[in-house]
């Protein structure tokens, strides 16, 4: 890793139907959100396996955010209800293991919420900047 100012990598898992469209809307509305965010499109937020989150950290992410449709609006009716339970338990476990809470986040963003998407990303990236480099869930092999 190059020596210099810390520039985080933030992975955002966005569901195809709402959040990804929300990101699109943010783009077409020319709203600014940080370039540190790398979006990975998933069919539904419940496609996000806990391994995805861990692997993102392993491969160098400093923060992971999951975005899905608002509860009740899931394209598959119930997907995000499962997400809600699963991710709550996962984040709680990461916290229990001593991983900084600020590195993980979940937000419901609809296709119409371009502004929300940009705001959420700005805020989250700022938070990750404050936490600094991910040290506790890192794999040194991927960093050198």
């Amino acid at each position: 890793m190059s020596v210099g100012e810390f520039k985080p990598l933030v992975v955002a898992f966005c569901c195809n139907w709402c959040s990804y469209a929300g990101a699109d809307l943010a783009g077409t509305s020319r709203l600014q959100y940080p370039a540190e965010v790398k979006i990975i499109k998933v069919p539904c937020s419940c496609r996000v396996n806990p391994l995805f989150v861990l692997r993102a950290f392993q491969k160098g992410a400093d923060g992971v955010i999951i975005c899905g449709c608002h509860p009740g609006d899931c394209h598959y009716s119930t997907g995000n209800y499962y997400t809600r339970r699963r991710i709550t338990l996962l984040y709680s476990m990461l916290d229990y293991l001593g991983i900084e809470k600020g590195r993980t986040h979940l937000e419901w963003v609809s296709a119409a919420e371009g502004v929300k998407f940009a705001t959420v990303m700005n805020k989250f990236v700022e938070q990750v900047y404050e936490l600094g480099e991910n040290r506790r869930l890192e794999d040194w092999r991927c960093k050198s």
Binding site: K59, G60, D139, R141, C142, S144
Partner: peptide, 9 residues
């Protein structure tokens, strides 16, 4: 082998 992105270990 482990694929560490920029290299294989």
């Amino acid at each position: 082998d482990y694929d560490a992105g920029k290299k294989v270990k």
